[in-house]
């Protein structure tokens, strides 16, 4: 019985096999590297001979007086990202979907995705040019309007807003692509039928368009939660300075100074493992929740 069933799906197994091998070889074989979080890894001794130190690196992380601050900073930035950035590509994709003029649609699509290709060095450089108190465009404007200069770049108050805005500016267009692909699958006849029934544009959006991309939205959200504590290193590193470090230092930038630039791989692996575990918990919870609501989820 089982054999018959296996035989029936033999093509499916054959198709899955190369991918499965890929994951086993390139993802699971190297995974022994995680154990260096519990060792004092020294490249010369190798993975197996480096001394075992148990939870030393986790101790260091959790007992660091900065830990609470780091966690708070990372958490808030991640939350901002999900609350303010995540819905934006969906919104823009829906707006683009409503745009009837085909050429305009293509032009807008092409333009909004350009910033994705600019490195953070360039984007941050431009942000500096706009926001600096020394002749920055925004501050010149504020002064002309009779206001006072605002120290956007060297203050705790503005840091999160600017980081999130930069992400919104850079990645929104790129983020729409996947939703546009999902929307392309909607049967135009559904809209026609809805119009016949007298449904207005908003109702069409609500009852046809949105359900078509709902599962994509949910999957992307779950996957995003898996990387909840990854805030992106380069952007924050470039925006950080003495005056905003209290709110701006996150796990990724903190680990950079001690881990990467000093070659302390064990400690940075430990921090990475902590982040991954948080991600795993969130993914499992979110997936369970999604299934409860009748969604497919990611596994």
């Amino acid at each position: 019985m089982l054999i018959a069933r296996l035989m029936r799906n033999r093509w499916l197994y054959l198709m899955v096999l190369p991918g499965l091998l890929y994951f086993l070889i390139f993802k699971y074989w190297p995974m022994y590297g995680i154990f260096i979080a519990f060792k004092d890894y020294q490249p010369y001794l190798g993975f197996w001979d480096s001394p075992f130190v148990g939870f030393k690196h986790f101790d260091r992380l959790f007992s660091d007086p900065n830990f609470i601050v780091l966690f708070r900073n990372t958490f808030i930035l991640a939350l901002y990202n999900i609350l303010f950035f995540f819905p934006l590509p969906i919104l823009v994709a829906l707006m683009l979907n409503e745009l009837r003029h085909e050429l305009s649609k293509r032009i807008v699509q092409t333009l909004v995705y350009i910033p994705h290709f600019m490195s953070w060095v360039v984007v941050v450089g431009i942000a500096y040019m706009f926001l600096t108190t020394e002749g920055g465009f925004i501050n010149v404007l504020l002064e002309k309007l009779g206001g006072e200069k605002v120290t956007f770049l060297v203050s705790n108050e503005w840091f999160r807003t600017i980081i999130t805005t930069e992400v919104m500016w850079k990645e929104t267009g790129w983020g729409t692509i996947i939703f546009l692909a999902a929307l392309s699958g909607v049967d135009p006849q559904l809209y026609e039928a809805a119009r016949m029934d007298g449904a207005n544009r908003l109702r069409q959006l609500w009852h046809i368009t949105l359900p078509a991309i709902r599962s994509t939205i949910i999957i992307l959200l779950i996957l995003r939660l898996g990387h909840f504590l990854d805030t992106g290193f380069e952007q924050i590193f470039l925006m950080l300075n003495a005056m905003n470090r209290e709110v701006g230092e996150v796990f990724d930038t903190y680990v950079y100074a001690v881990g990467i630039s000093q070659g302390q791989y064990s400690f940075s692996t430990a921090v990475g493992l902590f982040k991954s575990i948080v991600g795993l918990i969130l993914v499992v919870l979110a997936n369970r929740l999604a299934k409860k609501f009748g969604e497919e989820g990611i596994y």
Binding site: V154, A242, M243, R245, A257, V258, S261, Q262, Q264
Partner: peptide, 23 residues
């Protein structure tokens, strides 16, 4: 210093900037 030096030097470097800027 090898282990934490960079992290610690940030405390001093940041305070230096803050003092000069009057915060």
């Amino acid at each position: 210093e090898i282990e934490k030096g960079k992290e610690l030097s940030k405390i001093i470097a940041d305070a230096t900037v803050k003092f000069i800027m009057g915060s």
